[in-house]
Design a protein around this nucleic acid. Structure first.
Length: 225
DNA sequence: CGGATTTGACCAGCGC
DNA sequence: GCGCTGGTCAAATCCG
């Protein structure tokens, strides 16, 4: 089961996280731990902030390592800030390698190269459409609202009831022209309080800043996307 | 009235 | 080849 594998990954992830950042930017009640993916390991989860999905996805890991220190100091104003976040939400994220860099590998190797995905989930991923491989990032957030304010404007284009889940999955597209970023929003079957938000692709524009957006959230959005 | 959402139909990939 | 499933489309509907 897909959702089951999420739980398995989550347990391993907590021990590897090296920092937190708030997500979404306008929500003070959620913090997001992040860490580094270890490729080819099933039990070790990799957590990568979306900002690390650099243009060259093969450099995700090294980029994350290189920027780790900068994130915890300059972006968050010092390591002490990390502990000041209201860590009421148990949130996390995982990244997925862009398959385009693996075109010459065998099918099995391609599967193995997905970051932080359990064996069960990898099997599942084989059945999903894979023509266009965009970087994908999944966030698990404790929230009453399904659609978290991430600074971008989204248009819903579909909703689907996923097998063995009681909550439908919603599909959104970024409303910006020429921006093909999509996201899926669903509730965790085992814990409906948890919202699973999966982003696919990278924005080609800045967030649409509303009047409420603070300078800090703008800064964080630039970091993330 | 125009933009956003809903929702059933359709399509593609995969397993059997 | 067929059925199942997830993802997308697009007409209908909603709503500010």
């Amino acid at each position: 089961m897909f959702s089951q594998s999420l739980f398995e990954d989550q347990a391993d992830m907590s021990s590897q996280q090296y920092g937190f950042f708030t997500f979404p930017p306008n929500n003070n009640n959620t913090t997001l731990p992040f860490g580094i993916c270890n490729q080819n390991t099933l039990k070790t989860l990799t957590i990568i902030p979306p900002s690390f999905a650099a243009d060259n996805n093969s450099l995700i890991e090294s980029t994350a390592l290189r920027q780790k220190e900068d994130l915890t100091t300059s972006i968050f104003g010092g390591p002490h800030l990390l502990s000041l976040q209201k860590a009421t939400a148990n949130t996390w994220a995982w990244g997925e390698v862009n398959e385009r860099s693996n075109v010459k590998k065998s099918r099995d190797n391609i599967i193995d190269d997905h970051l932080g995905v359990s064996a069960i989930k990898m099997k599942k991923m084989k059945s999903s459409r894979r023509k266009v491989r965009e970087p994908r990032f999944c966030f698990k957030t404790l929230s009453d609202v399904d659609v978290l304010d991430d600074g971008y404007k989204w248009r819903k284009y579909g909703q689907k009831v996923v097998k063995n889940t009681q909550h439908p999955r919603s599909y959104y597209r970024c409303t910006q022209d020429n921006c093909r970023v999509k996201k899926r929003v669903e509730r965790l079957a085992e814990d409906p309080r948890m919202v699973i938000t999966t982003y696919e692709g990278r924005h080609v524009h800045s967030p649409s800043l509303d009047e409420e957006d603070s300078q800090a959230s703008s800064q964080l959005n630039n970091l993330l996307w």
